[in-house]
């Protein structure tokens, strides 16, 4: 009995779940901020900055504001983080094949990653603060606009591989890089990830120059720290997922580092280049161009498959 429990516990708490995901997330957040700073000719944060931020937030006083549902207020950050940590088990983090798999785990992972945005939106709607409400509306609007193209874009490789299981898609994608055959899908997936993470230019839900901090305005201390952790874990998982599906799979830690850091650099360049889009502009972008382009890609793939058979 002990023999079976211990490895499972270790995999949940140390590798690849728990601690490893946290540390990787912080390292990637630091890289993100440092690269952005260098692009803006700044020095940028010190290497331990994400850790210091999280520790400070965890040690800060937490106040539950009036007019909120207190249970929901404390539970939402925990649910959001739990969703992200669970998703980490199905993703080939650090190039070590996913720990658990079952047919259809791609869909489950994508929905676990959406849980964070969902919790963010509900957290904003839970408070009576007007900035939180506007933030929540925007978060949900953005969720409904990027989710469809992002999902379709990640299902492209799955469709070619004929499987909805991440490691099977990776095994079939290893022979050829899917990015070469489905470039539109790759672009939409990367931009969808930026939307999912609410990074510029899709940061309207938390635009601090307009609506203070969006749905997180009333959060501080532990709640804010947990949401923040969830977000940086989502950054790592999203990048890993796109690299695994589109860039010929991840088979070793070195492979993981090279491919994910390359993707991160692309994302940071986009972040530094573009100014924030208005919420209606980003919705239009997703539905008018993103979804249509991915559907075109799908049509092409279907025809190609029909010809090949």
């Amino acid at each position: 009995m002990m023999g079976t429990i211990l490895p499972v516990l270790a995999s949940l708490l140390l590798f690849p779940g728990g601690l490893t995901v946290f540390l990787t997330g912080m390292a990637y957040e630091w890289m993100n901020r440092k690269l952005l700073a260098r692009f803006q000719t700044r020095v940028g944060p010190r290497w331990f900055q994400p850790l210091a931020d999280v520790i400070k937030l965890l040690a800060k006083e937490e106040v539950v504001p009036e007019d909120v549902h207190p249970g929901l207020f404390t539970a939402l950050p925990v649910v959001a983080l739990a969703g992200c940590l669970t998703a980490a088990l199905y993703v080939p983090l650090w190039g070590v094949g996913p720990l658990y798999n079952f047919p259809g785990d791609l869909i489950v992972t994508l929905f676990l990653l959406s849980l964070l945005t969902l919790c963010l939106g509900i957290a904003g709607a839970n408070t009576f603060d007007r900035f939180s409400l506007v933030g929540a509306t925007r978060a949900f609007t953005q969720l409904f606009s990027y989710e469809a193209p992002f999902l379709l874009a990640l299902l492209g490789p799955a469709f070619v591989a004929g499987s909805w299981q991440i490691d099977e898609i990776m095994a079939s994608g290893a022979a050829r890089w899917v990015i070469l055959t489905q470039p539109i899908g790759f672009i939409v997936a990367v931009i969808g990830l930026i939307g999912k993470l609410e990074l510029p230019p899709f940061d309207a839900p938390e635009a601090e120059t307009e609506i203070v901090a969006g749905s997180l305005t009333e959060y501080s201390g532990r709640g804010l720290a947990l949401f923040h952790m969830g977000k940086i874990i989502e950054l790592v998982l999203g990048i890993t997922l796109i690299a695994a599906l589109y860039l010929g799979g991840l088979y070793s830690p070195l492979d993981f580092l090279i491919k994910t850091i390359a993707l991160l650099i692309v994302i940071v360049i986009l972040e530094a280049l573009f100014a924030r889009l208005r919420i209606d502009q980003s919705v239009g972008l997703w539905w008018r161009y993103g979804t249509l382009l991915v559907l075109l890609q799908w049509l092409g793939t279907i025809f190609w498959k029909g010809v090949a058979i």
């Binding site: 020095v43 601090e208 120059t209 901090a213 997180l216 009333e218 959060y219």
Partner: peptide
């Protein structure tokens, strides 16, 4: 501004009093 770059010290301007120290 980038010229003085206070992110070096971890200083970040926040919009919400709940987040600020």
């Amino acid at each position: 501004t980038p010229r003085y770059d206070v992110e070096r010290f971890g200083i970040k301007l926040q919009g919400s009093p709940r987040h600020a120290d």
